[in-house]
Write a protein that binds this DNA or RNA. Structure first.
Lengths: 127, 127
DNA sequence: ATAGGTGCAAACAGTTTGCATGTAT
DNA sequence: ATACATGCAAACTGTTTGCACCTAT
């Protein structure tokens, strides 16, 4: 059984809810900003602690993009990848997946997972 | 013409050489450590400044792996991707590329680049 | 001679931690 | 009542910047 008992608090609920309602991965800053609208006086430390707790529970996942702050999203979204707009810097989920990855790597290597990030311009910035 | 004139210094040479001799991407710390063996008293700031200059000149590229410090490698290796061994944490280059990325993203998005990281066990760790 | 580069230390930014207080159980 | 959670501020870590000195051109 888990050693840590997880309590239900308004901060935690607010953060999970913000993530649930977001269609894209959010950074700590974005989380803080969004959740502060619901919980006044919410501290950064709480956001970090809560996100890390959610990470440990596999409720959220890390979305890391080079040169960008780490973002988080719910883990229950299934396998997908990410697109970052080079103009507005927002990160979008992209459905679907590439295949034949296995054929790229040397024969004796064992593949467990992969991550794909695409860069370009999002619909609004491209026009 | 470029506004910045790039000088030839031993620090810069040492760093580029370290990168040239490395068969895998290196972090700032690894760069500092390796280059200090050649240039005594080399400062961190210089490593950062130099790496950033090399980045701007497209001499090196960023290799970012989630949860890992950013690494750098020469840009002249051509398009390729990376494989991180989950056991020994080493990062390997993998030749070749996936295609049909464009079909994954929404129609109005514009694709400029992509990055793929594969995780698993390398040949020596898999056996 | 002069613009650019370097090393050092201070400044910053992002993240973590200690502690007194608050609160879910 | 008790243990976990929170907010605040201090502590850390990694990166950038200001400045006096150095060096390639």
């Amino acid at each position: 059984m888990p050693s840590r008992a997880s309590r239900k608090t308004k901060q935690r609920d607010a953060l999970r809810e913000v993530l649930e309602r977001s269609e894209r991965p959010l950074s700590i800053g974005e989380l803080l900003e969004a959740a502060t609208k619901r919980i006044d006086g919410l501290g950064v430390a709480t956001v970090y602690r809560t996100v890390n707790a959610l990470l440990e529970d596999d409720v959220v996942e890390v979305v890391a993009i080079p040169g960008e702050p780490v973002r988080y999203e719910l883990a229950n979204k299934g396998h997908h990848h990410h697109f970052q707009c080079e103009k507005c810097t927002r990160v979008f989920d992209i459905a679907g997946c590439i295949d034949n990855i296995r054929k790229l790597i040397p024969p004796k290597f064992r593949v467990r997972a992969h991550e794909l990030t695409v860069y370009g311009l999002c619909a609004s910035c491209a026009r």
